[in-house]
Amino acid sequence: MNPNLKSFGLMAAVLSIFLTGCGRSEIQVYRVPKEIRTAPAFPQASESQIAWATPQGWNEQPSSGMRLGSFAVPGPAGKAGADVSIVQLTGEAGGTLANINRWRSQLELGAISETQMARQVTQFSVNGIQATMVDLLSSKPVGDPPQVTRMLAVMIPQDASTVFVKMTGEEHMVTSQKAKFLQLVSSIRFSKTAPPPAIAAQWKAPPHWKAQPLTAMRKGSFLITGENNSRAEVSITSFGGMAGGILANINRWRGQIGLAAISEPDLEKNAETTHIQGHHITIVNMAGKGGQRILGAITPHGEETWFFKISGDDQLVQSQKPALIEFLKTVKFP
């Protein structure tokens, strides 16, 4: 072969080996010194510090993951023990009913309604804070190993978070430890740490809007009650950018009350725009199916879009429009 060809071929081969050798990264295994794992930014709240007294005979485990506290309750010889956890989550962490239904599903029990829940929970005071307790028993052996399982769970609202204390284990084991579990719950103390600097929006709500606990998504939450037990809920949220656009959000709200989506040309007919305190605000007032109504206001501010939504019984929501306009005048964005 021509020696020039040979050397060219050799260079091309070296180049291709070099390029194929620089492939994508592979799975790596390495050891690192034990690290202190920081508190999460997203779902867990820790505005207050929490302390408790461990009941006698229970083995406190190192806190880990979501757990602020963890206890192993030893069972009688040869029998499985029970597990106790203390967890703190932002807001209501989905709400009391959602949490109870989640625990019920863990015990392979069907979901219950708000009315059924009211009959199944007990409320009592933990150092001046109203706590809610639920006592669940599986109808058949569940889990691993399969056993008839009992779960005691207490929810204690604390600032903008909820503390969950839960004991799970074999039915008789949990029953025998219930007194100690309640002793643990009543020993819980909160000590406040300095709150982070406020970067929240400020507003002045009408007196008949009753403030509700905030959730991870809600910047503001209020309950309005009217005649004949009618109810409406006010939620204030904000999302980055256009949050999908005004039309998409109005259609999302329409979907929530059983209305069909509208297109861009229909938007003008269904929404009004106004200027309040220099903010361009889009207001919609939509009567839905089943006597439901949504009154909403959307306004972009800085890099975020803010949503003010009043949803609930038709007449009550309809009557809140002047209150909403007055409320919007008081809003000072961060």
């Binding site: 799975i27 295994v29 390495y30």
Partner: peptide, 22 residues
């Protein structure tokens, strides 16, 4: 008790592999 052992799986495995074994 003295150290943590880390198995780090690069992002492209999440998009390209359905099952990851190591």
């Amino acid at each position: 008790p003295d150290y943590d052992e880390v198995v780090a799986i690069p992002q492209h495995f999440l998009g390209s592999e359905k099952n990851i074994q190591h």
